[in-house]
């Protein structure tokens, strides 16, 4: 399990880092890299698997709404590494039964498939741009399934409270600026749960472009989970609120469930 699916030296470094962290004295101040690595795991890899009923409200600057309701299931093949996502759409009504499958590989493009019920057709979808919108929302694919910490360089700026919670403020700058739409990200990572409480993305002009906020944190089966999150595009005024309900971890979802076959006829475990 440890070695399976390792695809990148960077990943090895993280594992090594974590191992070092495990034996290091607990009192040592974690570095920015360590904070971001922990946050990545806390946010995107809790449990072996996860399933949730997600309701996304896409709200335009004048208050008009579009609603997406979907069941999102995740299965990790490896902590911090390869993952599979399955998404079953309930709403809007005309896309009911539409399904979406993502095999996520660290360090290279995902594989994505989409089932179009009206055509009874499964189509591979290109996934070169991880910064593109997820299901038309303000969240990008990376916001949903995580951006690898090794893609950025991190700097611990300060400690700061977000509401009642003590947080570490970390600035991340992409190593390959051409590949992304932001030049700088500032994250407020909760010291208690390692979850990001707030993130600010700055565009190429250095202007604030998007703001992520964790609006509600719940402990579910021992895993701290952001059950309500908002991504706001500060330039257009558009925002998306995603509410995670009915969150379950460790349901023993087999990796084999996440298959092309399931797209056409989703098993009950993935479409509830």
């Amino acid at each position: 399990m440890m070695v399976l699916g390792l695809r990148r030296a960077g990943w090895v470094a993280v594992v090594a880092g974590l191992a070092v962290l495990a034996v290091a004295p607990a009192a040592a101040q974690p570095t920015a890299e360590e904070i971001m690595a922990k946050a990545h795991l806390a946010m995107f890899y809790p449990g072996e698997d996860m399933r949730a009923r997600v309701t996304m409200r896409l709200v335009s600057r004048d208050g008009k709404e579009r609603v997406r309701e979907l069941t999102m299931s995740r299965r990790d093949l490896q902590d911090g590494g390869e993952q599979r996502y399955f998404i079953y759409f309930h709403r809007p009504p005309d896309v009911r039964d539409m399904t979406f499958l993502v095999w996520k590989y660290p360090g290279r493009d995902d594989d994505r498939w989409l089932y179009v019920p009206a055509l009874k057709l499964v189509r591979r979808i290109a996934a070169s741009d991880k910064r593109s919108s997820f299901a038309g929302s303000d969240f990008s694919y990376e916001d949903v399934s995580g951006r690898e910490p090794e893609e950025d360089t991190h700097k611990l700026l300060r400690g700061e409270k977000v509401g009642e919670r003590a947080a570490s403020v970390v600035e991340s700058v992409p190593k390959d600026p051409g590949s992304v739409d932001f030049t700088r990200k500032v994250s407020w990572i909760d010291k208690a749960t390692w979850l990001p409480l707030k993130e600010e993305y700055y565009d190429r002009r250095g202007e604030l472009a998007r703001v992520f906020t964790a609006e509600e944190l719940k402990e579910i089966q021992g895993f701290w989970t952001v059950t309500k999150r908002v991504m706001k595009n500060t330039q257009t005024g558009h925002f998306t609120e995603a509410v995670f309900a009915d969150v379950r971890y460790n349901q023993k979802l087999s990796p084999d469930l996440f298959s092309e076959r399931a797209l056409r006829a989703p098993p009950a475990e993935l479409s509830r």
């Binding site: 335009s60 008009k64 896309v95 179009v116 009206a118 055509l119 919108s133 997820f134 299901a135 038309g136």
Partner: peptide, 30 residues
């Protein structure tokens, strides 16, 4: 295409990966 479902699903598919404005510029929310 022939059916309303197909149109709806196409638009959804488009909105899944295109820039938000691409679709917003041509149809309203409802």
């Amino acid at each position: 295409p022939e059916t309303k479902e197909a149109v709806g699903q196409y638009l959804f598919l488009f909105s899944m990966s295109a820039k938000a404005s691409d679709l917003n510029n041509v149809v309203d929310y409802p």
